[in-house]
Design a protein around this nucleic acid. Structure first.
Lengths: 149, 149
DNA sequence: CCCGATTTGTACGTATGTATC
DNA sequence: GGATACATACGTACAAATCGG
């Protein structure tokens, strides 16, 4: 009796969905503060760990922003089930692709000028491995520029 | 102001780093099972929540794989990926920097041509969040090209 | 500058549920 | 069904950050 395809939703999932729905229904303005954890506990009738887990999920997905000593605030500019990376990628997919082609050409030029054929082949291998390797969090990282050098 | 770059490391962070270091030092083979949670508790002298938080971070970054009723297992292909990453960066630092400048200029051009100022600002916000957000494994991701589009 | 109130962060303990063997 | 091991949930206590008096 284990093959039940029913989603056993944890309390944290349940609370997270309710908070999300409440925010989406327009009861909150952007930047507004969420009720405190004790209030949410009474409001949903669950313990603090469940509240914190729910808030953690929503904050991880970008819907909430938590600050110690201050409170939890609504961001409200993210779409459902979409991380920041995914949204950025979809929004600028064409531009990124164009940049990517430029990047590959430039890499090839530099490699051909300054590197031996063996080293060029090595670098190409690196890039191929990076293509297949799952990065962090189920391999959703497709960043083009994410830091300084 | 609180400009101290010192990270107050929680117990979970400490345990996660130790486990990571232990795995990297080669004491585990790929696919091998980690000690159980009670054993890790005694081994590190912390409570179960800290162990679970540490394992959760490592699993989220892809180093561990947890399965209920079975145990926690080592994936160990992340280390290779990071090694390649670091090697590529170190080996071709100058080339990458040159490409980076090219990339930034091209991105600015594309943004100015095809996007409204508001969208440009939005994308800049995303990049800033990526800079501060602790990504996988202590936020060392500086990839220029890490996937296909 | 210190103090206290408020709010989130961390850590522990305990009990129970669920999956695998 | 029993044994093992991770998952969920609650409660408690204290630490740390923020703000206002």
């Amino acid at each position: 009796m284990m093959n039940t395809p029913i989603h056993k939703r944890s309390l944290a999932d349940e609370v997270a969905n309710q908070i999300k729905a409440y925010i989406r229904s327009g009861h909150y303005v952007a930047g507004q503060r969420l009720p405190t954890e004790p209030e949410l506990m009474k409001q949903y009738g669950v313990g603090r760990s469940s509240i914190r887990e729910a808030v953690r999920m929503l904050a991880n997905s970008g819907l909430l922003r938590v600050q110690q000593g201050l409170g939890t605030f609504i961001n409200e500019f993210v779409e459902e089930n979409e991380t920041l990376h995914q949204r950025l990628n979809r929004a600028a997919a064409k531009d990124i692709d164009e940049v990517r082609q430029l990047l590959e050409v430039k890499i090839a030029q530099k490699a051909a000028l300054n590197r031996t054929p063996k080293q060029l082949e090595e670098i190409e291998g690196f890039l191929n491995e990076r293509l297949q390797a799952p990065g962090c969090s189920a391999g959703e990282d497709r960043s083009v520029y994410s830091g300084r050098y």
